[in-house]
Design a protein around this nucleic acid. Structure first.
Length: 641
RNA sequence: GCCGGAAUAGCUCAGAUGGUAGAGCAACUGACUUGUAAUCAGUAGGUCACGGGUUCGACUCCUGUUUCCGGCACCA
C-alpha cells in the first residue's frame, strides 16, 4: 500500500496501518502531536486503520482542524462521564463549536452548576483510564436496534440520508452514534473545562422537548486553556451593559419597561454624533429626509401586508374613536404614502426618502439583551423608489454608502448574506415571476460588484430578497449591520406608479435600505469595540480641562472650556477642589480622550498641557496648536491615524 | 416564549446553621491649596426586587410575580 505525503514523497506501508502508527514511524514527537489524518478528502481517526492507497495528510495540534477534533472528542468524553454518573441519561447532539463543544442531555433531574465539577472529575478519571475510541460502521437496522430505547438517537438515525454510512464510536462501556473524526484515545484529552448549563430544544424545534445543554472547551495545552478562560473574563469587561452603566451611557429600567432603553446624556451625545453623521451622509447622497408618525392605522399595515405577516412582532392594536391604530414596527408603509402623495414622473426617479425614526417591535422576552435587542429602537430608515433600469445603480450606491459608514465607524464587513426564499411558500409573497426577477437582479449586482457573498435560502423578507452586511463584533458575535432589500410587492399593494416616457403608468421598484443598524444596537457594538474609550469624534466628552489649583487656575480653565465648546467640541472642566492626580485619575476612568492641564505656565503663555486617554505622556502646546490637533482627530473619525 | 441561575446602599460586593444589615468607592460637610491614576477626618445613605405563607421572630425557609444573566427558539 502506498501513501503520498503533502510534500510529494511516497511511502510504502503494510496495510492496514493507523495514522498514529504512521506518525510514530516518522518520530515519536510527531506521534504525540498528531490528532488525526486526512486520506484524500476523508477524515481518519488517529486509530482508524488505513487500507488503501491515497494522499495522506497528518493533522497535528497546530492545524485548524485539530481543535475541532479535540473538542468533538471532548464532547464524547463528557457524554461518557455523564452516562457513568447518570445511567438513565440520553443524548441529543454533541458537536464541536467555534470555541469548544457542547452536548445535549436528556435527564430526569435538572443539573446544577456544582454538577459540572462532578462531571469534570469523572471526565478526568476517564482520561486516566485512556479508553480507545473505536469506530465501527453499522447498518441502519443495526443502529436502530442498538438505540431502540433511545428516542433521541433513533430520531437522529432516521434523519441520516439513505445511503450515507452510519458509524458508532465505542470508548470503554460507552457507545455513541457519530460520524467522527476523533482523537483515538481519551487519554489525549487533557486540558478542558465545563463552562455552562443551558436549555436547548432537541433539533432546534421549539415545539419539541427541551434538553439540557452543557458547554465546555478543550485545548492542547494548559496555557492555551488558561488563555481562553482569561479571554472569556476579558469579554465580560467589554460587555456593553457593564460599560454602559460605568460610563453612564444608558439605562434599562423595569418600571420604564422591559426592552425600552433610556439614553442618558453621555449616551445621547454619542448617538447625536451618529445621527448627524447619517443625516449628512444621506443628504450628500441625494436622500430626502422626511418625518412620519410613530402610530399608524391598522388599515395601513393591512395594505402593506405587515398585519398578516408580521403581527406577532407588533404590539397589540389600540382602538379609539372607531379607528384601530398600531405602533409602527417599520417605516415602509409611511414612505409608500409619501410617494403616493404626488404624481410622479420617470424623471423624478430615483426618489430616496430617509427618516430617523423610532419603531416598536414586540421581541420575545428571552431575546432581549441590553441595547443589542430592544423593543423600541431608533434608526435611519430609507426607501428608494426606482425604475427597473435604475435598480442596479441604486443598489450599488447604497452599497457604497454603507461601506463608507462601516469604515468610518472603525468596523469591518465580515461577509455579505444574500437571502433568498426557499420552498416554504407560506412565508413569502406568492409571485414566482417577481421573486425570480428580484433574485436575479440582486445576484447580478453582487457578482458585477465583485462582492463576496453567501447565499442563505429561506432567509428573505416576505416581500423580496435582500443582502445583509454582516459585521463581526470584537466579542465574536456576527451582527447584521446594514441591509439592502428589493421589493416588488409593496409598490403593487399600494398601487404606486409613475408616468413613463410614453405617458403610461408604470410600477416603481422599492429598495429598502437599513444603514447602520439601530442606534441602540450600534451603540452596543461600538461600546464593546472601543471598550468604552470612544474615538474623539464620538466621545461624549472629548476633552476635560483640569486646573492644577482650582483657586488660582479655575477661572482660566472655565474660560478655556467655554472657548472649546463655542468651537463645537464637547468639553468639561473639573472644578473640584482636589489634587491634580485625583482629577487625572478620574478623567482616565471616564475614558475622556484629552485631559488638558492648566497651571501657571499654561495660563501665562496661552498653552495647554494635554495627555491622551491611556497614555501618560504629556505635551505642552499652544492653545491654537491643540485646537488644530483636535480638529484633525475628529475629522478622521474612527479610521486609523 | 422555553430550560437553568440571580436580585442586599448610587456603584462593586460581604452577610454559616432564621434573632430586622456591613465594607470600599461615589455623595455631602470640614480641614488641606494641590503639576499628571485615589490627601485626611466626619456625616448621611437600605420596605435586603415585589406579593403571599411558615415561624414568637424571615435578607435567610416555602410559594407566586417582576426584572436581569447564560443558553435555546425567535430576529423584515
Amino acid at each position: 500500500m502506498q501513501l503520498t505525503f503533502p510534500d510529494g514523497k511516497k511511502k510504502t506501508y503494510d496495510a492496514p496501518i493507523t495514522p498514529l502508527a504512521i506518525a510514530k514511524a516518522i518520530s515519536s514527537s510527531l506521534a504525540k502531536k498528531t490528532v488525526a489524518a486526512f486520506l484524500d478528502d476523508t477524515l481518519y481517526d488517529l486509530n482508524r486503520p488505513i487500507d488503501r492507497d491515497g494522499a495522506i495528510r497528518l493533522i497535528t495540534e497546530s492545524d485548524d482542524e485539530a481543535f475541532e477534533i479535540l473538542n468533538h472528542s471532548s464532547a464524547h468524553l463528557m457524554a461518557q462521564a455523564i452516562k457513568r454518573l447518570y445511567p438513565n441519561a440520553q443524548f441529543g447532539v454533541g458537536p464541536a463549536i467555534e470555541e469548544g463543544f457542547y452536548y445535549d442531555v436528556a435527564l430526569d433531574e435538572s443539573l446544577k452548576e456544582d454538577d459540572l465539577l462532578k462531571i469534570e472529575n469523572q471526565m478526568r478519571k476517564l482520561v486516566k483510564e485512556n479508553h480507545e475510541m473505536i469506530r465501527q460502521e453499522v447498518s441502519r437496522e443495526a443502529a436502530l436496534t442498538f438505540f431502540k430505547d433511545d428516542f433521541y438517537k433513533t430520531t437522529l438515525i432516521e434523519a441520516i440520508p439513505e445511503g450515507d454510512a452510519i458509524t458508532l464510536y465505542r470508548q470503554g462501556d460507552f457507545v455513541d452514534l457519530c460520524r467522527g473524526g476523533h482523537i483515538g484515545f481519551t487519554g489525549k484529552i487533557k486540558h478542558f473545562k465545563l463552562l455552562s448549563l443551558a436549555g436547548a430544544y432537541f433539533r432546534g424545534d421549539s415545539s419539541g422537548p427541551m434538553m439540557q445543554r452543557i458547554y465546555g472547551t478543550a485545548w492542547f495545552s494548559k496555557d492555551a486553556l488558561d488563555a481562553h478562560l482569561s479571554m472569556l473574563e476579558e469579554r465580560k469587561e467589554r460587555d456593553h451593559r457593564k460599560l454602559g452603566k460605568e460610563l453612564k451611557m444608558f439605562m434599562l429600567n423595569s418600571e420604564v419597561g422591559q426592552g425600552l432603553a433610556t439614553w442618558l446624556p453621555n449616551g445621547y451625545a454619542v448617538r447625536k454624533v451618529l445621527e448627524d453623521y447619517v443625516y449628512d451622509q444621506e443628504r450628500k447622497a441625494g436622500y430626502l429626509h422626511v418625518s412620519t408618525p410613530v402610530l399608524g392605522t391598522k388599515h395601513l399595515y393591512e395594505t402593506s401586508g405587515h398585519w398578516d405577516h408580521y403581527q406577532e412582532n407588533m404590539f397589540p392594536p389600540m382602538e379609539k374613536d372607531d379607528e384601530t391604530f398600531v405602533l409602527r414596527p417599520m417605516s415602509c408603509p409611511h414612505h409608500m404614502k409619501i410617494f403616493q402623495s404626488d404624481l410622479r414622473s420617470y424623471r423624478d426617479l430615483p426618489l430616496r426618502y430617509a427618516e430617523i425614526v423610532t419603531q416598536h417591535r414586540y421581541e420575545a422576552s428571552g431575546a432581549l439583551t441590553g441595547l443589542e435587542r430592544v423593543r423600541a429602537m431608533t434608526l435611519t430608515d430609507a426607501h428608494i423608489f426606482v425604475r427597473p433600469d435604475q435598480i442596479k445603480e441604486e443598489v450599488i450606491n447604497a452599497y457604497e454608502l454603507i461601506e463608507t459608514a462601516i469604515a468610518d465607524l472603525g468596523l469591518e464587513i465580515a461577509y455579505i448574506e444574500f437571502a433568498t426564499r426557499d420552498d416554504s411558500k407560506s412565508k413569502f409573497h406568492d409571485n414566482d415571476r417577481l421573486w425570480n426577477l428580484a433574485e436575479t437582479i440582486l445576484e447580478d449586482v453582487l457578482k458585477d460588484a465583485e462582492i463576496p457573498y453567501k447565499k442563505v435560502p429561506g432567509e428573505a423578507a416576505f416581500y423580496g430578497p435582500k443582502i445583509d452586511f454582516q459585521v463581526k463584533t470584537v466579542l465574536g458575535h456576527m451582527i447584521t449591520m446594514s441591509t439592502i432589500q428589493l421589493d416588488f410587492l409593496l409598490p403593487e399593494r399600494f398601487d404606486l406608479n409613475y408616468i413613463n416616457a410614453s405617458g403610461e403608468k408604470e410600477r416603481p421598484v422599492v429598495i429598502h435600505r437599513g444603514y447602520i443598524s439601530t442606534f441602540e444596537r450600534l451603540m452596543s457594538i461600538l461600546l464593546e469595540q472601543y471598550k468604552g474609550a470612544f474615538p474623539t469624534w464620538l466621545a461624549p466628552v472629548q476633552a476635560i480641562v483640569i486646573p492644577v489649583n482650582q483657586a488660582v487656575h479655575g477661572e482660566h480653565a472655565k474660560a478655556l472650556k467655554q472657548h472649546l465648546i463655542d468651537l463645537g467640541y464637547r468639553v468639561n472642566v473639573d472644578q473640584r477642589d482636589e489634587k491634580l492626580g485625583y482629577k487625572i485619575r478620574d478623567a482616565q476612568t471616564q475614558k475622556i480622550p484629552y485631559q488638558l492641564v492648566i497651571g501657571d505656565q499654561e495660563m501665562a503663555e496661552d498653552q495647554v498641557t494635554y495627555r491622551q486617554y491611556g497614555s501618560s505622556d504629556q505635551h505642552t502646546v499652544s492653545t491654537a496648536e491643540f485646537e488644530a490637533l483636535l480638529a484633525a482627530d475628529v475629522a478622521r473619525k474612527s479610521r486609523p491615524q
